[in-house]
Design a protein around this nucleic acid. Structure first.
Length: 455
DNA sequence: AAGGAGTCCTATCTAGCGTA
DNA sequence: TACGCTAGATAGGACTCCTT
């Protein structure tokens, strides 16, 4: 922040002054050379577990502030300070069981149930096993002792099985060839890693996951109706299909009586639902949960077909692979045979047709609106966000950039026009520097999009 | 007032599709 | 081949609202 006079001439005195003024400061030490730095690093790593808070590493800083100023900074990273992170913490535990989760597209994902163990200050009890091949490659079996790690200090990962020759192991894990939720046959298509349940909307797990997707942020964005409530409402028969959400008002008294529900939460829910009776075509298409059709692809379809009725009519015609309608679909930049196949199969399926017809009478789907980007300074540019922004959430920043006609990408490449770096910008800012991509600080970015005035 | 349940958001990884 | 997009995984912190 701003100070009326320099706080100190050195980093060390700066911290001492802060302490004198009553601030709490992290432990620190003055070192005279690299060796002392590394030895303090090792000391700190040993003390890490006993600290009352989590750290993932430490920072070395040049002590003299006039030297700090002289060294300056490159893009976002100061040349007078550098982080030294601890290696990811590992832990050993027992893999009690392998369970199978069913996703909204029917993908069967194996998850390890672990004997709870503390890794880096956090109790881990589950970890994804990704797919059949992952389990086979590491020869993971029920009851094994396993080594786990929190990758990037967040996601738990099973690294390897710790083999003990004396120990008798359970038989090799056999991946199920049917869905454990609905009993339907499961298939693994050639060239794919995943097994899929063939039950479609008949499978309760898929039906619920589809509903969760329908109300999620990028889709209908119904606050007050998250994953837990969808499950509960489904179980109690309040919501079986997406259209039921818009008929919930008929069951209002049931909902107000529910445990954990008061007037405030019920009012909020009904208000959110009422607001979403009108929705943009791109959100509507995304909400359907067609495999391989995420936000970007839904937008392409909305843009190309403009209106819901037009899109549905075109998809019906495109069922014939020799039709012009099919050629038109395939010709959309970003849509190939595989994606088109999933869309057409979805539209053809009976349950999905019922859902679409049902929703038709309950909702107003707005035609696609082209953006007015004539005066936008960032129209057509590709931007990547990294680090934490102070002024707004990542989602908000993304929406703002997109509403101004920019594309928001997840990783930095040669095609990136600029990177917006918030606090703690990491590898992406580094990559941008390597590629010579322009890096904007948050302040510069806000100035560029003229956010000072905007609400 | 405190505690708990639910939601939202973010981080990272694996895998497959589509385009240039 | 490089890159963007989509999907499906787990955990934790901030926040809101309900119950006790």
């Amino acid at each position: 922040g701003e100070v009326s006079e320099p706080v100190a001439a050195t980093q060390w005195d700066f911290i001492q002054n802060l302490r004198r003024w009553g601030f709490q400061a992290n432990p620190s030490k003055r070192c005279k050379d690299l060796g002392q730095c590394l030895s303090y690093y090792r000391d700190t790593e040993e003390r890490r577990a006993t600290l009352p808070y989590d750290i993932d590493g430490m920072v070395y800083k040049v002590n003299r502030i006039d030297w700090q100023e002289r060294l300056g900074q490159v893009s976002r990273a100061p040349r007078w300070a550098i982080a030294h992170k601890f290696p990811a913490e590992k832990a050993q535990t027992i893999l009690n069981d392998i369970i199978i989760q069913v996703g909204r597209t029917g993908v069967l994902t194996p998850v390890a149930e672990l004997e709870p163990v503390t890794v880096g200050g956090v109790v881990v009890s589950r970890a994804t096993l990704h797919n059949q091949d992952y389990i086979a490659e590491k020869d993971i079996r029920k009851g094994d002792a396993v080594l786990i790690e929190r990758a990037g200090d967040v996601i738990p990962k099973v690294l390897e099985v710790i083999k003990d020759d004396a120990q008798k192991r359970s038989p090799k894990y056999v991946f199920p060839d049917h869905c454990l939720e609905c009993g339907c046959r499961a298939v693994r298509l050639a060239g794919e890693a995943a097994w899929r349940c063939t039950g479609g909307l008949v499978c309760p797990a898929q039906a619920v996951e589809r509903l969760k997707h329908f109300v999620s942020r990028g889709a209908f964005d119904l606050e007050g109706l998250g994953a837990k409530n969808i499950e509960a409402f489904w179980k109690d028969g309040l919501i079986k299909t997406p259209a039921d959400i818009f008929r919930l008002k008929d069951r209002e008294s049931d909902i107000r009586r529910r445990e954990g529900w008061g007037d405030k939460s019920a009012d909020n829910l009904f208000q959110a639902i009422a607001q979403r009776r009108t929705i943009s075509l791109e959100r509507f298409i995304y909400a359907l949960g067609v495999p391989q059709v995420g936000q970007a692809t839904a937008r392409l379809l909305a843009k190309h077909y403009s209106e819901l009725d037009g899109w549905r009519a075109a998809m019906d015609k495109a069922g014939d692979p020799d039709s012009d309608a099919y050629a038109d679909l395939i010709n959309i930049d970003g849509i190939g045979e595989s994606v088109a196949g999933d869309i057409l199969a979805f539209i053809k399926e009976g349950h999905n047709r019922e859902v679409l017809n049902d929703l038709n009478g309950l909702l107003t789907v707005e035609p696609f609106k082209a953006l007015d980007t004539a005066h936008s300074p960032i129209a057509g540019k590709t931007v990547v966000f990294t680090g934490a922004l102070a002024a707004m959430s990542r989602g908000e920043a993304k929406a703002r950039a997109e509403s101004l006609g920019a594309r928001v990408a997840g990783s930095v490449s040669k095609k990136t026009d600029f990177v917006v770096a918030g606090a703690d910008a990491g590898s992406k800012a580094k990559k941008a520097a390597e590629l010579g991509v322009k890096v904007l600080e948050e302040k510069e970015w806000l100035a560029l999009i003229g956010s000072g005035a905007a609400a």
